[in-house]
């Protein structure tokens, strides 16, 4: 597909714009088909407001409005719920795209290209970034303990590659990430002075504390 689809936005704050821009740019499912715009003609609009005046954006005829709502708020149209989940926006955009174009996209190789890159945090992220999603905190924790691959992150967190990649891109955008091509380390870190708990210890403790790992 040559022409990009335009997702207009209204009333979003900068961290939200950055987040959504990152989702559009990094999602392998969206295959880089969408770009975020704040003026001109667009194929969908993301907004908090129910107003019909979108200027300087121009909504194409029949193009949908995606309302930003609080999770739990009832809404019958296209909606993107806060706290944001990348997969939900991606699903919505693919649905909109499929209305315009008959075929859905094949996954490209973008995700697999990332599989051998190793990442590590340079410093603990600003609270404002971590507040964008409730699961960002733990992803930052994982990345703060030595180098990790995308696969490591998905294994540790239980989240999808898209979600973890979106987080990595956000960290990179704010210059918080060291990246290098390489092979993931094979041997676990040797920590002789630490009483390393057995793995089922965590599941039992989480259960005891009422924590839901998912």
């Amino acid at each position: 597909m040559d022409a990009k689809l335009h997702l207009g936005y209204m009333g979003l704050i900068k961290p939200e714009i950055d987040l959504i821009s990152t989702i559009l740019r990094t999602s392998s499912r969206l295959d880089n088909h969408w770009i975020l715009v704040d003026d001109g003609e667009c194929d969908a609009i993301l907004t908090y407001s129910a107003e019909k005046d979108f200027s300087p954006l121009i909504l194409k005829p029949e193009a949908p409005v995606i309302m930003i709502k609080r999770r739990g708020e009832a809404f019958s149209g296209h909606a993107f719920y806060k706290p944001f989940r990348a997969d939900e926006l991606i699903d919505t955009l693919i649905l909109i795209e499929s209305d315009e174009q008959p075929s859905l996209h094949q996954k490209n190789e973008a995700a697999t290209n990332h599989s051998h890159t190793i990442y590590r945090l340079k410093k603990w992220p600003p609270a404002e970034l971590l507040s964008l999603h409730k699961h960002y905190m733990l992803l930052a924790v994982y990345l703060s303990r030595g180098t990790k691959t995308l696969h490591d992150l998905t294994t540790l967190s239980g989240h999808s590659e898209d979600f973890c990649m979106q987080f990595l891109s956000l960290m990179n955008q704010y210059h918080l990430l060291d990246r290098e091509a390489g092979r993931p380390k094979i041997a676990p870190v040797h920590l002789p002075d630490v009483a390393m708990p057995k793995k089922n210890f965590f599941s039992l403790l989480r259960h005891h504390l009422g924590l839901d790992k998912s």
């Binding site: 905190m137 733990l138 924790v141 994982y142 990345l143 703060s144 303990r145 030595g146 990790k148 490591d152 294994t155 540790l156 676990p188 870190v189 920590l191 390393m196 708990p197 793995k199 965590f202 403790l205 989480r206 504390l209 009422g210 924590l211």
Partner: peptide
């Protein structure tokens, strides 16, 4: 509990 969860996440990250 969140503080403890973070410690568990750190330990899990060290194991991988």
């Amino acid at each position: 509990i969140l503080l403890i969860d973070i410690l568990m996440a750190q330990t899990e990250a060290d194991m991988i």
